[in-house]
Amino acid sequence: MNAFRLAGDMTHLLSIILLLHKIRAMKSCAGISLRTQELYVIVFVTRYVDLSMKYYSFYNSIMKIVFLGTSISIVWYMRYHKVVKQTYNKDVDTFRHIFLILPCFVLALLINRAFTVIEVLWTFSLYLEAVAILPQLVLLQRSRNIDNLTGNYVFLLGAYRAFYLLNWIYRFFIENHQVRWIPWLSGLLQTAIYADFFYYYIKSWKNREKLKLPA
């Protein structure tokens, strides 16, 4: 495993730890989109259906279990925890899941490497992950007040994807990795969606101002 890939996985893990810290220690999910979190559960469940069938490495299996477990527990906290659920910005988190899920599913049926259940689900998870952050970005845009934890959470999620792009470049040139258009292009789109957020995040950090996205 190369350093970019490890850095990507670690920023991904760190983003989840940060969000769980906000939820468990501060008993708040203010500014967090339940829609996006539910989409991540769907992403992980559909991508990791091969968990019980195919073994890659101990690291790989553990990370998959961690991502599945943490994403499900985050959704549980936001929906059912009696204190946390009251901090959820329900009225502004109105992005409809189906507008993302349906097109991604149709696209996965049409564009995939092999027309098998596992492969279509895997492809669907890549397409859905690419756009799953959209409800969260919409929520941030509508929020007047973005706390540091939420801003850092979204930044780490974007950083994770940027590291994966570097990882693919490294694997292609150094490890003679084959061309893989589906994950590469969806990963590129996923990273591009963060571009605007990155711009305002870095700007607010440089000017030591509170993060605010223009409406």
């Binding site: 890939r5 996985d9 991904h12 091969d50 195919k54 890659y56 490495s57 790989n60 990370m63 998959k64 991502f67 895997w122 994966y164 990882n167 694997r171 990795h177 084959q178 893989r180 994950p183």
Partner: peptide, 10 residues
């Protein structure tokens, strides 16, 4: 192997 390479990612 080459056919499973991206699948070892998360």
């Amino acid at each position: 192997s080459a056919s499973t390479d991206v699948k070892d990612e998360l």
